[in-house]
Simulated scan of single mutants.
Amino acid sequence: MADILKQLSAYVDPYQRSLYVCLISIAASPLAWNVIGRNEYKNHTLSKLVGARVACTILGIMIFLAGLLRDVLYRIALHDQPRYPLPYEIQTVLSWIIFGAGNFLVATSYHALGFYGTFAGDYFGILHEKRVTTFPFNILDNPMYLGAELCFIGAALWYERPAGLLISLYVHLTYAVALHFESPFTDMIYSQLGSSAQKHD
């Protein structure tokens, strides 16, 4: 067992505080926006104070800034972890393909959803006329989450840090838990919207 732990320590340093700060930041954002969003949907706490669009804009800016902070903390965590040299084809070519694909999915998702669609507008009652099904949502269920995961993987390969791949797996699991709560809510909201539209036809 000691030999296994010694071998693992060559790839992952579990004693770096930056690793756990990074993990906390990754989980904190989806937890916060789901808690705030659900409260807003039920109680309209922020909307009563400043209006739905202003409240959603504030939350959206907070989510965006939290994402930037998370990315900075991820980079710090990677630099504190052991480096494992990779071939050029993986470290540069593959990493940029993966990172580029991730950013492409994030950017096209944002373009399709818009600001309010991206940043929890449905919790504030700010909805599209119908559920977005244009690219990339016509080929993937959750392209923005997948895009973010690919960005984590691409960065892990670029910086040649095996720990980054484990963090990327943690990101995937975190988003899977978030989607467990978000997807049924979105389905419910737009099914109600569709039922309401049919009644008016």
Rank of each mutant, 00 (worst) to 15 (best):
80 D>L: 03
23 L>K: 02
92 T>K: 11
18 S>L: 02
29 S>F: 03
164 G>V: 08
135 F>A: 15
136 P>H: 01
169 L>F: 11
179 L>R: 11
183 S>W: 00
77 A>M: 04
116 Y>D: 10
80 D>C: 12
64 F>S: 13
104 F>R: 02
71 D>V: 05
85 P>V: 00
67 G>P: 07
76 I>L: 12
200 H>F: 01
80 D>V: 02
146 L>F: 14
1 M>W: 07
163 A>T: 14
8 L>Q: 06
186 T>D: 14
87 P>V: 00
197 A>R: 14
85 P>D: 11
43 N>M: 08
146 L>V: 12
135 F>D: 06
185 F>R: 06
145 Y>G: 06
34 N>M: 11
66 A>E: 01
104 F>D: 12
130 K>T: 13
66 A>Q: 04
120 A>Y: 08
58 I>E: 04
29 S>Y: 03
192 Q>G: 08
134 T>H: 01
180 H>K: 01
189 I>W: 06
199 K>E: 15
83 R>F: 00
33 W>T: 07
43 N>K: 05
76 I>H: 09
114 G>A: 03
71 D>L: 08
104 F>C: 11
158 W>L: 15
39 N>V: 04
185 F>W: 00
111 H>V: 04
124 F>G: 04
181 F>A: 07
110 Y>V: 10
102 G>Q: 07
27 A>C: 12
23 L>S: 05
34 N>S: 09
59 L>A: 10
44 H>G: 10
187 D>H: 05
38 R>W: 11
80 D>K: 06
156 A>Y: 08
157 L>R: 12
108 T>L: 15
71 D>R: 00
41 Y>V: 01
192 Q>E: 14
76 I>V: 13
99 F>N: 11
138 N>K: 08
155 A>T: 09
91 Q>T: 00
181 F>H: 14
143 P>V: 04
82 P>C: 05
145 Y>Q: 05
173 L>R: 00
177 V>D: 06
80 D>H: 07
185 F>T: 04
159 Y>K: 00
63 I>R: 05
105 L>E: 12
6 K>D: 14
54 V>S: 14
56 C>V: 05
12 V>E: 07
2 A>V: 01
62 M>L: 15
94 L>Y: 07
95 S>V: 00
12 V>F: 13
154 G>I: 03
190 Y>G: 05
200 H>P: 00
168 S>Q: 11
124 F>Q: 04
27 A>G: 15
114 G>K: 04
193 L>N: 13
81 Q>R: 00
90 I>C: 08
187 D>F: 00
58 I>T: 10
56 C>L: 05
103 N>S: 01
137 F>V: 10
161 R>G: 13
1 M>Q: 09
79 H>C: 10
8 L>W: 12
45 T>H: 05
100 G>S: 09
34 N>E: 09
117 G>N: 07
25 S>C: 11
153 I>Q: 13
200 H>R: 08
35 V>M: 07
108 T>C: 13
54 V>L: 15
150 L>V: 07
